[in-house]
Design a binder for these strands. Structure first.
Lengths: 233, 233
DNA sequence: CGTGTATTTGAACACATTCAAGCTAGGTGG
DNA sequence: CCACCTAGCTTGAATGTGTTCAAATACACG
């Protein structure tokens, strides 16, 4: 009933990443049939902290921020997700986080029960989810180290270095494309918007990065950036 | 070949928690046979960040701290684990963290390959590991919120409230037993030892807690502690 | 080209840290 | 039994990093 969707699925940008990469083309229709595709506008919140955790999501296009709020408005962004990323593991019966699109997003929504049925048939899916969760745990711990122990300049340098590694796109000299605002960056790094701005200015003055207006940052001195960020992993 | 160990396994303090709880007594020997039991002395490091991640661990007795270090000695404790806790998910091919016993520890060590063989036969184990990882992700995100956005007094209050919930032992008025040193607490909360000490003194003066000398703290005013810690979950 | 949003920059301030000294409890040996 | 020693903890004063408050500038979009 969804031959057309299956074909689209095979050509999806996320086809060979994360969850989807777990199945061969032959079995892919089991996942494709369980997927509810939808488009999320920039700024739209598609997961709300505290709501019953009924779905998982897989990002096919765009990017989103995941965050937790305190009662008085303070916010901590716990991660940014992009194409191929799986969203929704951090939940018991209710979501522990909220998610908002920072770019127009296309995603596949999976009912948790339905996905469980698929993974019962293909244990490789459950195993893949475990790998994804393990990797997220590693990232989360590194972020705890950053938030608990690193200085402002170390946090920004760590972030840029990490973002560079995630988007490794052939040319190591190409400018990084940061889809998020300064405010998002601040809320991710446990800083204020002013501090992020000042630190970026400092890194620019030191000749480590070049900051362009259109959310693009070029890394001029990788070695120095990694040294500042204390990222030797 | 291990009837005696199986019987001990059934009476283990961790029998009905986490990983072990996934199997019925009838199937338990598959796990028991894969377990290598060992004793870890207080202060002993049994996982080292960067080493090949060959094992998982399940704590049967005692408690340990998990942490990451920076080159200059700054340390972030990413979690404390106790009886029934599973250790080792936060790893790819190498451990992303180190683990040190803060009390004498008894644990079951599992070779990752062997455990994979068991979980191939009992998918419920893989599912349980995913549940454990999901729960750890929730905890990790709450910790990011704490480290990135909460004040010193909010961090300490959150910790005490969280520790209280973990050790919920019948009597809600019973003093909490904190196995870790002030220094560990500081490294967990992203503070210094002096700040932790000052904040505890402040909470004591406010009549929220009573601090005894033997690592015991009584919570005198739960509502106020939760309010200070911004823990409404 | 004008308007609103995002970002940068500046100055005063605050919270937590650093450095330093004192205290307490537990263990050891005279 | 008490003096002494050490490790852990507490308290105090000065300092510093990042925040807060405020204003100016740059940018994107109509």
């Amino acid at each position: 009933m969804s031959r057309h969707e299956l074909e689209a699925c095979k050509r999806c940008d996320a086809r060979h990443q994360g969850l989807c990469d777990a199945l061969h083309d032959d079995d892919l229709h089991f996942l494709s049939d369980a997927a509810h595709r939808s488009a999320i506008a920039k700024g739209e919140v598609f997961v709300t902290e505290g709501n019953p955790a009924r779905n998982f999501f897989n990002i096919n296009q765009g990017a989103a921020k995941l965050y937790m709020d305190l009662a008085d408005g303070r916010r901590q962004i716990t991660g940014f997700v992009g194409v191929g990323d799986f969203v929704g593991l951090a939940a018991g019966t209710r979501y522990a986080f909220s998610a908002e699109a920072i770019e127009p997003v296309q995603l596949c929504r999976f009912d948790r029960i339905e996905l469980r049925a698929v993974s019962a048939r293909f244990p490789v899916i459950e195993r893949r989810l475990l790998e994804i969760a393990s990797h997220e745990l590693v990232i989360a711990q590194e972020q705890m180290l950053l938030l608990g122990r690193k200085t402002a300049i170390e946090r920004v340098a760590s972030f840029l270095e990490g973002w560079y590694r995630r988007t490794l796109c052939a040319d190591p000299g190409a400018p990084l494309d940061l889809p998020m605002l300064r405010g998002d960056l601040a809320e991710y790094l446990g800083l204020t918007i002013e501090t992020v701005s000042r630190v970026l200015a400092s890194l620019r003055r030191q000749g480590v990065v070049a900051v362009a207006a259109d959310h693009r940052i070029s890394i001029l001195d990788h070695a120095r950036l990694a040294a500042i960020g204390q990222t030797f992993a």
